[in-house]
């Protein structure tokens, strides 16, 4: 040991940090909304322009899935949502983000509609309040309307099995498992 060894120590710490960094994804941004009540909104649904819904009309536990017809990853994720809604009876609300109503309706007609209803957010104002930055995104809402989890990007079967279903079961979602 001598007084120059601290240089090696600093280097080892640096390498440990870089090694840890290799396993992280720097582009994932956690939402500060997790643990907070869902941001209030009031908007029409995709299928019924006259029907106005608000944050009080999304009884949890449930999923809120942000989607758009122009979003390729949403197309990819869609079968997973359909299976969740149809086979497992998980309530899913859609939020149709920065889309055109006729495109959204056609998309759901073609691919199937897993949503109880989809809130129409044509100008992305609601998405802004919800901190949406990449579609698709999926929020888990509990019975009190508090956001418990947010998934960014398309859902796959692993996400559903390992994260969403256990969480929903914890939250007391009836038949989710």
């Amino acid at each position: 040991m001598n007084r120059y060894n601290w240089i090696v120590v600093v280097f080892v710490l640096l390498v440990a940090l870089l090694a840890a960094g290799l396993r992280l994804d720097p582009t994932r941004v956690p939402s500060p909304l997790v643990g907070k009540p869902m941001p209030p909104f009031s908007a029409a649904t995709v299928h019924a322009p006259q029907r106005v819904v608000g944050d009080g009309q999304l009884p949890g536990p449930a999923l809120v899935n942000v989607w758009a017809s122009w979003c390729a990853a949403c197309h990819h994720e869609h079968p997973v949502l359909l299976a969740l809604a149809n086979d497992l009876r998980v309530p899913i609300y859609g939020m149709n983000y920065k889309d055109r109503r006729e495109d959204a309706v056609a998309w759901l007609g073609r691919l199937g509609d897993p949503y109880i209803f989809s809130v129409f957010d044509g100008d992305g104002r609601i998405g802004l309040d919800w901190g949406v930055y990449g579609v698709p995104e999926t929020f888990v809402i509990d019975a009190d309307g508090v956001i418990r989890y947010k998934h960014i990007g398309p859902l796959d079967d692993d996400d559903v099995e390992q994260v969403l279903l256990p969480l929903l079961a914890d939250l007391g979602a009836g038949r989710a498992r």
Partner: peptide, 8 residues
């Protein structure tokens, strides 16, 4: 901004 997206 931070209320929606965090300190990021």
């Amino acid at each position: 901004m931070t209320a929606r997206y965090g300190d990021f």
